[in-house]
Amino acid sequence: MFSSVDDVSARLAETGYLASPAVATTVFLADRLGKPLLVEGPAGVGKTELAKAVAQVADARLVRLQCYEGVDESRALYEWNHAKQLLRISAGRDESWDEARTDIFSEEFLLPRPLLTAIRGDDPKVLLIDETDKADVEVEGLLLEVLSDFQVTVPELGTVTATRRPFVVLTSNASRELSEALRRRCLFLHIGFPEEELERRIVRLKVPGLSEALTESVVRVIGALRAMDLRKVPSVAETIDWARTLLALGADTLDETVVRDSLGVILKHQDDIQKAAAKLDLDAL
């Protein structure tokens, strides 16, 4: 899919995703080694966006499995279309038992769910397993077969093996420790907060109207806030929100009033706002 690491960065940038060298290298390796990619990191740094960008670059279909507490086999893998099976049985009254049995457990009555969809068919696909840590431990066991051998076993049908391996991205917010078995099958990528230079480029790309000097100040203030011990440090998503807010407010430089009025865009807890205001020498709120 990609010829070099630089190729990855360049093509991801075309879709509007600016990748750090670490991200580009790992995406390149995941493609080369044919291994799933496990992405961890704080909320709002673009974990899900990465999968979407890769799908766009590869001109592939994005198959998404959103994990939540209680997601199970029939939501993730496949399900038999029970109603249709009943219809089939009542339609063919004169058949022998053997005929009916082999027929109702055929592909026609199978409802594929994301994992099965991703490995069937010949078109390129990107499988995104989002928020893997929200799913129960049992689901991880389900994923193991898919992730290591790219196959799914349906007892009545046999094993479905991928003819064309999908590019797999798993994301996690580390609200639960994923099992060692799952981690071992993946390449691990931690997306942290971007370096100043990269973040400036991101702001420039997403909020083109903002002046150069203001962009620089915004990124510096955000960098300083991240170094503080806050309950929820601002993420890239907040940086962009803030830049948009400043643009909408028509500010051309940062000053105390502007920062004080818009601090709520980047910090989401009252304690944090107070702490940041003290640190930035803003007057009492």
Binding site: P21, T25, T26, L29, R32, L33, K35, E40, R183, F188
Partner: peptide
């Protein structure tokens, strides 16, 4: 896997090699 990553990335760029090895060897 790490050795395959070295092969795919080459030894020209040290920082790429660092990220590649980290991706293949570490889990957290």
């Amino acid at each position: 896997d790490a050795a395959r990553a070295v092969e795919a990335l080459g030894l020209a760029d040290r920082e790429l090699l660092r990220e590649g090895l980290a991706a293949t060897l570490l889990h957290g």
